[in-house]
Amino acid sequence: MLKIATDKIAEIIILAREMPRGESEFDGFVGRLDEEEEASLVAVFWIGRGSFEPEDYEEAYATARREASAPTQDYLKGSPHLADHLENGLDALGISAKDAEDDLY
């Protein structure tokens, strides 16, 4: 299903909460993801904000791959609710965002 490790998404959620103070760390972390991970991250984000339903993850992933035109970190930073959307997306997919975040602390 997901083409990105849950702990990576949890790290991105934590970094997103620290912006703008941690923006360069966020940019570096997201910038090191490969294309599959980036598309999966965007798909989770879209599910979390309600653009796609959880059962449409594969369609969201394919759309993210096809429509990627800007650096993923720049695209995601455009959302003032990035961390919430990622958490909601994971939760909608049946993955506990809180557990993943807690594992990093």
Score class of each variant (00 low, 15 high):
residue 1 M to F: 04
residue 4 I to H: 07
residue 5 A to F: 10
residue 5 A to G: 07
residue 7 D to P: 00
residue 10 A to I: 02
residue 11 E to S: 14
residue 14 I to V: 15
residue 18 E to W: 08
residue 20 P to E: 07
residue 22 G to Y: 09
residue 25 E to A: 12
residue 26 F to I: 04
residue 26 F to L: 08
residue 27 D to S: 13
residue 28 G to A: 13
residue 29 F to W: 02
residue 29 F to G: 00
residue 31 G to T: 08
residue 32 R to M: 06
residue 34 D to V: 15
residue 35 E to W: 12
residue 35 E to Q: 12
residue 37 E to M: 04
residue 43 A to W: 00
residue 43 A to D: 01
residue 46 W to K: 09
residue 46 W to T: 00
residue 48 G to W: 00
residue 48 G to S: 08
residue 53 E to F: 03
residue 55 E to Y: 04
residue 55 E to C: 08
residue 57 Y to T: 09
residue 57 Y to D: 06
residue 57 Y to M: 01
residue 58 E to V: 02
residue 59 E to Y: 08
residue 59 E to I: 09
residue 60 A to H: 00
residue 62 A to R: 12
residue 66 R to E: 14
residue 66 R to G: 09
residue 70 A to V: 05
residue 70 A to T: 03
residue 79 S to P: 08
residue 79 S to K: 04
residue 80 P to E: 11
residue 81 H to P: 06
residue 82 L to A: 04
residue 82 L to T: 12
residue 83 A to K: 08
residue 84 D to E: 13
residue 84 D to L: 14
residue 86 L to K: 04
residue 88 N to E: 08
residue 90 L to S: 06
residue 90 L to P: 06
residue 91 D to W: 05
residue 92 A to W: 00
residue 94 G to D: 01
residue 94 G to N: 05
residue 97 A to S: 15
residue 98 K to H: 07
residue 98 K to V: 04
